[in-house]
């Protein structure tokens, strides 16, 4: 009973922090839209051309924007020792990571959902592509949250080389993009690709708490 209450408290705190930080999350969304504008300016406003590459652009910019919030993932809680205190109250690091991934998914990635219909409108995407995009983004962003967790925990003690965390997320997001964008190809089988994505999300949800917790413990030992 106490345990569930603790998890509930954790989410309440994350929710409060989310409302305090809401500006930074909307800044990410703004970054996303501005990059779309940059793309359109760079490629020219040819409607057919944009329509055919719109989905790919939206997906790659979503991945890029999600690397922006990478350093916020654990850094503050790690530096001020909240992670240790929460752990000392009976929650293992693996579970903390799992909860953090869920809260990152809910409070950082899900707000991006409101930007997707607007972005699709800008590219005149056909309606079934928008549905597919929203559906794949919900699953894909869960994978991105797992990847962000691993990359952020890997770079907790990295004070000099900021870009490598983003590089790692981009590297492992390659399969996510392949399968998410592949859904819209004419001869692709929707069901099997969605199953692959869900399978990947489950695998990453299994791996990343273990890996991130190992990195966090490593960083705590050498803080």
């Amino acid at each position: 009973m106490f345990f569930i209450k603790k998890i509930f408290l954790f989410f309440k705190r994350e929710l409060k922090l989310f409302f305090r930080n809401i500006v930074s999350i909307f800044s990410n969304i703004l970054f996303f839209f501005l990059s779309i504008f940059i793309f359109v300016f760079a490629l020219g406003a040819d409607e057919q051309n944009l329509k055919s590459i719109g989905l790919g652009i939206i997906w790659s910019l979503l991945v890029l924007s999600s690397t922006l919030s990478l350093r916020k993932f654990y850094e503050e809680d790690f530096n001020n020792g909240v992670l240790v205190i929460i752990h000392m109250r009976g929650i293992s690091y693996e579970l903390i990571v799992f909860l953090k991934i869920l809260s990152h998914f809910l409070f950082v990635q899900v707000p991006f959902l409101i930007s997707i219909p607007v972005a699709s409108l800008l590219f005149n995407l056909p309606i079934y592509e928008v549905y597919n995009l929203i559906f794949t983004f919900i699953i894909g962003s869960l994978i991105l949250s797992c990847l962000s967790s691993m990359s952020a925990s890997m770079n907790l003690l990295n004070k000099a080389n900021f870009s490598i965390g983003g590089i790692i997320v981009l590297l492992f997001s390659v399969p996510v993009i392949i399968f998410s964008v592949g859904i819209n190809e004419v001869d692709s089988d929707f069901k099997s690709l969605i199953n692959i994505l869900i399978g990947m999300a489950l695998i990453f949800l299994g791996i990343s708490p273990w890996a991130s917790a190992a990195f966090i413990k490593l960083a705590l030992r050498n803080k």
Binding site: L157, N158, F215, L218, N222
Partner: peptide
């Protein structure tokens, strides 16, 4: 990237 030896080695290995 990392200054600390243990962090450097284990992070790379993982």
């Amino acid at each position: 990237t990392f200054e600390n030896k243990e962090v450097r080695e284990k992070t790379t290995a993982i």
